[in-house]
Design a protein around this nucleic acid. Structure first.
Length: 820
RNA sequence: GCCGAAGUGGCGGAAUUGGCAGACGCGCACGACUCAAACUCGUGUGCCUUCGGGCAUGUGGGUUCGAUUCCCACCUUCGGCACCA
């Protein structure tokens, strides 16, 4: 223990605010265009200003900040911006409950969070801050909407949509989660409503969104998006009804067309009324009402027994002209494909169950190989498609694997259908019946229809004088004057659209606003765009895989096609962090009382220790439960670093050449591995490497290394490696050890390969693959020398007991394995 | 049912290409310091052991001189999707 009067104690509460202030005053982290320097755009998902920065924010941001700092030291011109996703429901709920205006509530929260963010000691360039609820921001959100509208990428339609009865608004399909189909924000099960809503044509980009070839994203995210888009290949086939209407179906199995023995429509299918015969009308209407009442959750449970009703109508199978009955059944969904299917009971289990229940014909069209011919009357289940086509007109006799292509060729030649690709991805529903969002810049004129607000009139500002009545309706609808305006085309009386935009619209382009939040001629300054875009590293939670991360890719591609953005992808590299759980291994929540407050931790340990612990305590991409005593390790380590560098040794000694050589080796080996770990997001081993090295340095210090040239080098490299992780203590020690401000402007150290080289290795000696001896040998040992040294080992001799080795395996620099 | 991720000491985790399993840290035990405690420092710490060694990376197989790592089958946990035609 040092004499506390001679060496100052490590007091983060003093050092941290001091350096934060200095860095801010000096504009140390200002990122400005510099054509001479390679750029690096490091982005972390923008937070919602809930009013309190929780440990999850720190977990997302500190390691990202550390990596951005590392890149900066590597010589990149790094931009690391921050902002707030400031529209959204909680602000509005606070207004309803406590009478505070959402703007006031939001801005107050932002102030708190900005202050909290600053205690983290990040390299955020605050000049680039963007707040999505600011009119200077949402003016451009509206501008983007208008570009989409003018180019047929935004449209209005009436549809059966998901509605959250708790949030009182419609939701996009992506924002309805789980089997219980609950609201992404509040967890309430959604209901279906038939409403006129605004959509973006995300489906135009379905195919392109499946292509990840240009980007380095986690496999998991790519898989989630791929499954969400759910592409399937098949054919569109048109069946004619007896009375002449056309029913289009999508099938992935056009090869089984000859086995289609009936058709099934969703109960809501628009043709049902027309097809249904008068004697079936009553049964059909009863069934439709029943399906409507049931709701999607119940209806989409796959293991329910299938039910349905005959419409009385018939269709003609276009390949064999067979007359087949048309049924309705709730196992066919209006929301997928065309809401109608051709049923092939012999080869589809659902259709099979339905056919058996209602005694509908089953025709086998694929005969499995090496089996007795199938007899439809005695089949117990649908059979899979391998074998040879039977009962299939011109396709009879072809192997099943060729039948898909031939069937398509056949229907195309006949003009009754064609090759087709279907996606599960839906167009993005962006209308929200809420106040605190960017108003959709549309005017509805009874004469001219829906027209965009002229761009020079943007933004369509939210009125501030609004009242929240417990009607569940947006206050925009109830405002006495706001909604009334004139038509931009004919000048007549018209009304504003009172729906606002999904806040995912705001977050689809915030990375562009960061480029130049001061710019007022365009969403961004094109010069800034050309320099900084695309985003080089994007970090955030995996929960956005099928929401924000699909929307922002769509947005970028749509804008590219409108000439606004360049390149095919907005974010080149994506990495996800995991979640910090409570000490009870449960998700942190106020109701569970297991929330860890970063403010308390900073007060107790300092930001550097918190940063280090967050990087150290788990694999970043997985996360882990918090451990209150674990963080003690971080503060112990920083105290150790502090005294190792500042406290002169009790007595001066002269280190041996070997001590100094070993010190240098460890320093450069650590530098090598830490550099690699920063590149690959292995944050936990960065910190453990730094811990190991300071342990080694302590030992070298007691061996007399303090003050030597090797020590000075170790000190300089150590502090520079520490700087991205713990920026404050690194700066403080840098200055106290006589280096010039600022450590964060120093270059990342260079590895001395020669110094990192081992000159001695531990040679592992195995007998039959089991460890029997270890020997320290020169790294330059030859194969012959290694083998004979191993064979000469006493331990080894006792195991091989004079038996002649069958084989001796040598792995250079590692081991000798003697097989007997 | 389908798709994906993960399973290593009491705990978080390490092992970059198939080559010393358990780095680093927490916790625990013992010791030093202290009137005492905390802090700090030191030592030890996978399990079993007849002290020779044996057994250990979810389970069972396989490939290999050698497997936490590759292959096959399965189990558990978590996440996503789901009557998707």
């Amino acid at each position: 223990m040092p004499d506390p009067t001679s060496i100052p104690m490590y007091k983060p509460a003093q050092i941290e605010p001091k350096w934060q202030k200095k860095w801010a005053e000096d504009g140390l982290y200002h990122a400005d265009i510099d054509p001479e320097m390679p750029k690096f755009y490091a982005l972390t998902m923008l937070p919602y200003p809930s009013g309190d920065l929780h440990i999850g924010h720190w977990y997302a941001m500190c390691p990202s900040d550390a990596r951005a700092r590392f890149k900066r030291m590597q010589g990149y011109n790094v931009m690391f911006p921050m902002g707030f996703d400031a529209f959204g429901l909680p602000a509005e709920n606070a207004a309803i409950q406590r009478g505070i205006h959402p703007r006031k509530w939001t801005m107050r929260n932002i102030e708190v969070m900005r202050r909290q963010l600053k205690t983290m000691g990040t390299m955020i360039d605050w000049r680039r801050e963007a707040i999505s609820s600011d009119p200077s921001y949402y003016r451009w959100t509206q501008w983007f909407f208008i570009q989409f509208f003018n180019n047929n990428l935004a449209y209005q339609k009436e549809a059966l949509v998901d509605f959250c009865p708790h949030c009182n608004t419609t939701l996009a399909r992506e924002q309805v989660h789980g089997e219980e189909r609950y609201c992404e924000r509040c967890g309430t099960p959604v209901i279906k409503k038939n409403l006129v809503q605004w959509f973006f044509r995300t489906t135009n980009y379905a195919e392109e969104l499946l292509d990840f070839s240009g980007i380095d994203w986690p496999e998991q995210v790519k898989t989630l998006q791929t499954n969400w888009i759910n592409r399937s290949e098949g054919a569109s086939v048109r069946f004619k009804t007896e009375i002449g209407d056309e029913i289009e179906v999508f099938t992935t199995r056009p090869d089984t067309l000859w086995g289609a023995t009936f058709m099934v429509l969703a109960p809501e299918h628009p043709l049902v009324d027309k097809i249904t015969t008068s004697d079936q009308m009553e049964a059909v209407i009863t069934y439709q009402l029943q399906a409507e009442r049931m709701g999607d959750i119940q209806r989409e449970t796959a293991d329910r027994e299938k039910t349905g009703v005959f419409t009385g109508g018939y269709a003609i199978n276009p390949v064999n002209d067979e007359k087949i009955p048309i049924w309705i059944a709730d196992y066919v969904m209006m929301s997928y494909g065309t809401g109608a299917i051709m049923a092939v009971p012999a080869h589809d289990q659902r259709d099979f169950e339905f056919a058996r229940k209602y005694d509908l014909p089953i025709v086998v069209v694929i005969q499995p190989p090496d089996e007795e011919p199938l007899v439809s009357e005695v089949m117990e289940a649908a059979v899979p498609a391998a074998g040879e086509m039977v009962n299939s007109g011109p396709l009879t006799g072809t192997p099943a694997e060729d039948a898909f292509q031939q069937a398509i060729a056949h229907i195309e030649a006949k003009g009754v259908g064609e090759y087709s690709v279907n996606y599960r991805l839906r167009d993005w529903l962006i209308s929200r019946q809420r106040y605190w969002g960017a108003p959709i810049p549309i005017v509805h004129c009874p004469e001219c229809g829906a027209l965009p607000v002229p761009e020079d009139q943007l933004p369509v500002e939210l009125p501030m004088d609004v009242e929240w009545l417990p009607t569940g309706e947006s206050p925009l609808k109830l405002h006495p004057t706001w909604r009334f305006t004139t038509c931009p085309h004919c000048g007549g009386e018209a009304e504003r659209e009172t729906d606002t935009m999904d806040t995912f619209m705001c977050s689809s382009w915030y990375h562009l606003r960061y480029l130049s939040p001061w710019h007022d001629q365009y969403p961004f300054d094109p010069q800034e765009y050309d320099y900084w875009m695309p985003v080089d590293t994007y970090t955030g939670g995996i929960e956005h895989a099928t929401m924000h991360l699909i929307y922002t890719r769509f947005f970028h591609k749509a804008c590219r096609d409108l000439g606004i953005t360049k390149g095919d992808e907005p974010m080149l590299q994506l990495r996800n962090q995991g979640m910090v759980l409570g000490e009870d291994h449960e998700k942190m929540s106020k109701s569970r009382g297991n929330v860890i407050s970063p403010d308390d931790l900073v007060a107790a340990y300092g930001a550097d220790a918190v940063r280090a612990y967050l990087m150290f305590f788990a694999r970043w991409e997985l996360g882990a439960p918090w451990n209150s005593s674990g963080i003690e390790g971080s503060i112990r380590w920083l105290r150790k670093v502090w005294f190792t560098f500042l406290e002169p040794p009790a007595q001066a000694g002269t280190a041996s050449q070997e001590t100094l050589r070993n010190l240098r080796r460890k320093v450069h080996q650590t530098l090598q591995s830490i550099t690699y770990d920063f590149e690959t997001f292995n944050f936990n081993t960065i910190v453990s490497g730094l811990m190991e090295l300071v342990n080694e340095m302590t030992a070298a210090k007691s061996a007399g290394a303090y003050g030597t040239q090797a020590w000075k080098e170790a000190e300089s490299i150590y502090l520079r490696m520490l700087a991205p992780v713990c920026p404050h203590i690194a700066e403080e020690l840098w200055s106290r050890t006589g280096h010039a401000y600022a450590i964060h402007n120093q270059p990342w150290p260079e590895v001395d390969e020669e110094a990192a080289k081992e000159d001695q290795i531990t040679l592992i000696v195995q007998v039959n693959g089991k460890l029997r001896d270890r020997m320290t040998v020169p790294a330059s040992i030859s194969e012959e020398e290694a083998k004979s040294a191993a064979l000469a080992s006493e331990n080894v001799q006792s195991y091989i007991a004079g038996v002649r080795p069958k084989k001796v395996i040598y792995v250079p620099g590692r081991l000798v394995n003697i097989v007997v």
